[in-house]
Design a protein around this nucleic acid. Structure first.
Length: 420
RNA sequence: GUGAGCGUAGCUCAACUGGUUAGAGCACUGGACUGUGGCUCCAGUGGUUGAGGGUUCAAGUCCCUUCGCUCACCCCA
């Protein structure tokens, strides 16, 4: 008995009919991002494990339980990238892209890997388009890049999106907030769910995210980051907001928005879509002003986001993307077949998309096939035509057909297709 | 890692509380129409009911095991 193979859990094939959406997403991204001065960077699919553990954070879920990590033959620990930012920062520092000093704008696209239980809008191999800007703390960049992202979604025809934005503070003010939060929750700890009791120790900010009713109630009166931002963070956030207003971008301030990667500072945001499953964030990002330094580069503020392509694809209306052939050629019999083989080649030399039947089916069957391909013209060649050095050219929309000299058919097809 | 739901033809789904040979639509092939598509009508191909075991006179249906898919929790894009 032969084994029937299937794709491993959480990965999928993107088939013709669906792939056109993906090509559309990629093409549009290049157009929009390049308009804003971004260049593509291709980063490897895997890295030394430490690249991710250091940047994403040792105690995050991604690092603790979701990475595909394995030793290579020399014993080094490698990891399939769970996100793109860490690699881009590594490349930025490795190639001294900060020299000469100026703002560097990069984008990337490709697969990411996280070993999670698959769910609607979540896969083990999933695809992201990401953007990173290095070298400025200016809040104009925060607003400009968010604006670019929304323009991109607009070009894809997405509607009913919501921008949620927050400022997480910096290493000046976030520790103070954390203190205050711990202080507040200290005597409510037994009201929290089991998971949140763990979070209390490790990542108390995440308790805000919890959906359990008791945790929600317990944090109702809790302090939020808003009251603890330092002057610098406060003014950065206000400026960002003001620039968003200038771009007429609507947003919802969400002081409870927390992101799952440790490197974020100041601005954090997500784009939420209605009508997805419970995994409703189609893009997320923010500022990470310390990460380049942690990778051994000079102090370099940075801002970026990542788009979830799988989720975005779900929202794109199915359009008639697919490329149809213009001409179908019917050959009847072996003699005709010989002739048709050459003719098809000639047509393709002239940039005409041609399809044919490879099975030697009946005329009726081949015409049915032509109809299914949706071609405008069908060329029919059988013994009768060969004897006269003619072909039949059939216009499929009106059922009209005429005999044409076989020598002139390529020229006539070229002309007819150009007219339309 | 936890919980719930679902696995029947290539696809979408039927089959009442267990009951004869597991059906229909779409798709595919052929015919009505000797070499002329779409519409219509007729016929045909296609199944180890995910797999394995058990209960029963009898299992697609009930029980157990296992694999897979889906959704949700967790978390994230």
């Amino acid at each position: 008995m032969t084994t029937k193979y299937q794709a491993i859990k959480g990965v999928k094939d993107i088939l013709p009919g669906e792939i056109e959406k993906w090509q559309f997403m990629e093409k549009t991204a290049r157009e929009v991002f390049e308009l804003y001065g971004f260049s593509e960077i291709r980063i490897p699919i895997f890295e030394m494990t430490a690249v991710f553990t250091r940047s994403i954070g040792e105690t995050t879920d991604i690092v603790e339980k979701e990475m595909y990590t394995f030793p290579d033959r020399s014993g080094d620990s490698l990891t399939l990238r769970p996100e793109g930012t860490a690699s881009v920062v590594r490349a930025y520092v490795e190639h001294n892209l900060y020299n000469p000093p100026s703002v560097v704008k990069l984008y990337y696209m490709g697969p990411m890997f996280r070993c999670e239980r698959p769910q609607a809008g979540r896969y083990r191999q999933f695809y992201q388009i990401g953007v990173e800007v290095f070298g400025t703390e200016n809040p104009e960049i925060d607003a400009e890049v968010i604006g670019m992202l929304l323009k991109y979604f607009e070009k894809l025809g997405l509607k009913e999106l919501e921008l949620q934005i927050n400022s997480l503070g910096c290493d000046e003010c976030r520790p103070k907030f954390r203190e205050a939060l711990l202080e507040f929750l200290k005597n409510k700890i037994n009201l929290l769910c089991e998971d949140c009791q763990k979070r209390f120790e490790r990542n108390p900010l995440r308790i805000f995210d919890c959906k359990s009713v008791s945790c929600h109630d317990a944090t109702k009166e809790a302090p939020t980051i808003e009251g603890y931002r330092c002057d610098n963070c406060k003014s950065h956030f206000n400026s960002t907001i003001n620039f968003l207003d200038k771009l007429n971008i609507p947003y919802v301030k969400n002081p409870k928005l927390v992101r799952g990667l440790d490197y974020y500072t100041k601005t954090a945001f997500e784009i939420i879509s209605k009508g997805l499953g419970s995994q409703n964030a189609i893009a997320g990002g923010g500022r990470y002003d310390k990460l380049v330094e942690e990778f051994g580069g000079p102090p370099t503020p940075a801002f970026g986001f990542a788009i979830g392509m799988d989720r975005t694809a779900q929202l794109i209306q199915p359009l008639a993307f697919s490329l149809q052939p213009s001409v179908f050629i019917v050959a009847l019999g072996e003699r005709a077949n010989q002739k048709v083989f050459e003719l098809i080649n000639n047509l393709r030399q002239n940039e005409i998309r041609v399809e044919r039947d490879y099975e030697g089916s009946s005329l009726k069957s081949q015409l049915r096939k032509a109809n299914k391909f949706g071609v405008r013209y069908t060329i029919i060649i059988g013994d009768n035509e060969l004897d006269k050095d003619k072909v039949i050219l059939r216009d499929m929309s009106g059922s009209r057909q005429e005999e044409i000299d076989i020598e002139t058919i390529v020229e006539i097809m070229t002309k007819k297709l150009r007219e339309r």
